[in-house]
Amino acid sequence: MIYVFALFLLTLLVITAVAIVRTENLFVAVMLTSIFSLLMAANFFILDAADVALTEAAVGAGVTTVIFLSALALTGDWEKPRPGGRTVALGTVGVLAMLLIYASFDKPRLGDPEAPVHQHVAPWYLEKTPEYMDIPNVVTAILSSFRGYDTLGEVFVVFAACIGVLFILGVKPARQTAAAPQPVSGLRHHLIPQVVGRLLVPFIVLFGLYVQFHGEYGPGGGFQAGAIIATGVILYALLEGEAEALRAVPRSVLLALVVGGALLYGAVGVVCMLKGGAFLDYSVLAADPVFGQQLGILVIEAGVGMAVCGALLSIFHAFAARESMT
């Protein structure tokens, strides 16, 4: 039964993707992208990936849409239609689609327990997680301990991207002499969204913290929590105006979060080395190796959450500040 629902969702996914590419109104395209992400999250959930669904819903449907919209405000809503035939492009992608569909018949059936992907290290992770870390959520265990190097790299990519955006958008625009930024009123004349939004913001942040610290026991963790808290603050910025949000969470705090989060993650690794273990081998952090692992996971998840939240908010503010600059 659930597969029939999945079929329906997947078909909607294809329709949405085609609609996104067909429309010439970029605003509509961005809104459809948000729906696309939500459908994708539902699909992930049906395929048993609760953590990924949570991330996709928070990041794809929430943060990405806001960032796209703030970029659209700076570049314009309409795409110019391209004249001329589209046979070549359609032909190319058509052939590629045919090839991929042909190749799909060699892939293992959906849910086949004998598929090669389930034979490699995954069973080992599932078997050893209770022994080494004793936490229920295997995804968190792999993310932060077994594959801790990988996640460290990802956090530094997020960090680098954030710094890149700040550098690119931080430059003063050449044409104007810096005009005094007019105070942004936010949604002053929209009383009801403001009242309801104010009511919701604390709960969103609270839920983000729950996801952060409950990540070892249920779906969640630093990446999701960072994104959820960032959406809460972005909602506040949309309601009260950007200046007000910056007063609540100033730029310096955001930068400290990004840098501090990445540093915290790296520092845990260094502390592990100082205590005689390998880099990011949390077992040496405490007398009991299992407790050491749990402690390490808690701390680096906090680092990930700080870095992601700070990076997403810095990016949002960089785009929003550009609006008042030009």
């Binding site: 009801i192 969204p193 309801v196 939004g197 009511l199 919701l200 709960f203």
Partner: peptide
């Protein structure tokens, strides 16, 4: 509760 709060608000914001 969350949906009952946000749904009508979104509709209102859209109409506004």
């Amino acid at each position: 509760l969350f949906l009952l709060l946000t749904g009508p608000t979104a509709t209102y914001a859209l109409a506004n």
